[in-house]
Every structure is written in C-alpha cells, then in structure tokens.
Amino acid sequence: MPRILPQVLRNLFRKPFTVKYPYVKVEPPEGYRGRLAINKERCIRCWLCIHTCPARAISVDKETKRPSIWLGRCTFCGECAEVCPTKAITMTKEFEYTTLYEK
C-alpha cells in the first residue's frame, strides 16, 4: 500500500493550501522590504543614497532636484533607507507595482 495514500485522501477533504491571491491578500510581515517611498520635504540633498545604491537605480530628478528611484533597476536591498540621515527614504510593505523597462 503506497504510504502517501492517507495523506492524499485527507487532502481531498481539506481546504486547499493555495491562497486565492488577488481576492485574498496576505499581509507581509513587519519589516518587509517593499516599494521605496521618498519623503521629498525631508530630503536634504546629501546624495548618500545615490552613492550607496548597488544597482545605481537612484538618480537626481531634473525638475524637483530630489532623488528619484527607478524601480525597474531597484533590487530592494534597503541600503538607501538605511543610509539616509533624515529617514526621507523608507521601505513600505507594498509589493504590487509594475514598472516600464524604459526609465
């Protein structure tokens, strides 16, 4: 008798393990490294984030003269949020976003 048979028959009458994702959301834990948010008022333009970014995803926005993050290159390591002296860059728990290949 195959050993997995009881498990298989039990699964048949259990609620599936799969989460129906777009309808049921799973909240990521505290400290999840999601999309970056920049608080433009707090930025003091020290450009530390630009120097520390390993993926070179942060550049200076020409209009506002504040850093802007290209999420297409961002690797979500969180170094910029760690290095920012005024905590202007923070990591949110948001993970649903898309970005264009072009900048």
Binding site: F17, P28, P29, G31, Y32, R33, T75, F76, C77, G78, M91
Partner: peptide
C-alpha cells in the same frame, strides 16, 4: 512555504535576504 515565511519574517525578503 513555511521556511520561506520564516526567512521573510527575519530578513524582510522571501528569497533575497539582503
């Protein structure tokens, strides 16, 4: 998935812990 959840819990990322 259980171990992925644990990694996410302590490092903030499911795969790349950084």
């Amino acid at each position: 998935e259980y171990v992925m959840d644990l990694r996410e819990l302590i490092s903030g990322g499911r795969v790349h812990s950084a």
